[in-house]
Design a protein around this nucleic acid. Structure first.
Length: 213
DNA sequence: CACGGGATCGTCT
DNA sequence: GACGATCCCGTGT
């Protein structure tokens, strides 16, 4: 549970402000999100993990992005909001993937959170995942981390900024460039030349990121 | 450890 | 009506 002595993160940090989310460059944003704390608090139960792996999705010019070519549907409309809301969608009929919407309104830029290092409420995460004890697979992967934090697609469009929101990010020390590994995005082979962009970012040597492909 | 396949359903064609 | 920004389990090595 509480880990005031845990040197891996700073406790009781401020929520990241709108100015953080609304930066222009979604690739820089993806790197800036590494190391930050992703927190949920449902029914007063707080669970949190340090972001160790991300992926950038840039909007209308990115064939791997749901908003490619300005596609605007019931599902994707949330991506067009100003940075600072959640974009959560269902994939393969089973998994709920959590993204942070970034940039200005109308741009449809988002960062997929791909893996966390569990920090707070690990016992609750284990219950949600139906696992007996902690293991890397608890939060390594975009589908499983959402399940561990209790996030599902009903939270798409949820504010990460509002004082009473149930999902937010807390500031932490930035990860330096030499501690970041860039590689191609996962599962987007259909996206032609965009599939080659090295827009997947991981904290070097973190054992908590999902497996390389 | 690598792989192959099944699960399962909202979304868009 | 097809398929996906995934995961888990079974099999073989």
């Amino acid at each position: 549970m509480g880990s005031e002595k845990d040197a891996r993160f700073l406790p009781n940090q401020q929520r990241l402000p709108a100015s953080f989310y609304q930066q222009e460059d979604v690739v820089l944003m993806s790197k800036a999100l590494l190391g930050k704390l992703l927190v949920t608090q449902f029914n007063g139960i707080r669970t949190a993990g340090k972001i160790v792996e991300t992926e950038a999705y840039r909007g209308s010019d990115d064939k791997a992005c749901h908003a490619y070519n300005n596609r605007y549907t019931e599902r994707t409309k949330v991506m067009y909001e100003a940075g600072g809301v959640a974009y959560v969608y269902l994939i393969y009929g089973i998994h709920h993937l959590f993204n942070v919407v970034t940039g200005k309104a109308g741009e449809a830029k988002a960062v997929l959170i791909r893996a966390l290092e569990p920090i707070e409420g690990i016992d609750v995460m284990l219950q949600r995942r139906n696992m007996p004890q902690a293991a890397t697979r608890l939060t390594a992967g975009p589908g499983v981390l959402s399940k561990a934090l209790g996030i599902d697609k009903s939270y798409t469009g949820h504010s990460l900024l509002a004082p009473d929101s149930l999902i937010w990010l807390e500031d932490q020390s930035p990860i330096s460039e030499d501690q970041i590994i860039a590689s191609p995005r996962v599962g987007v082979a259909y996206a032609a030349e965009c599939a080659l962009w090295n827009w997947r970012f991981r904290i070097k040597d973190s054992k908590w990121s999902s497996k390389a492909k």
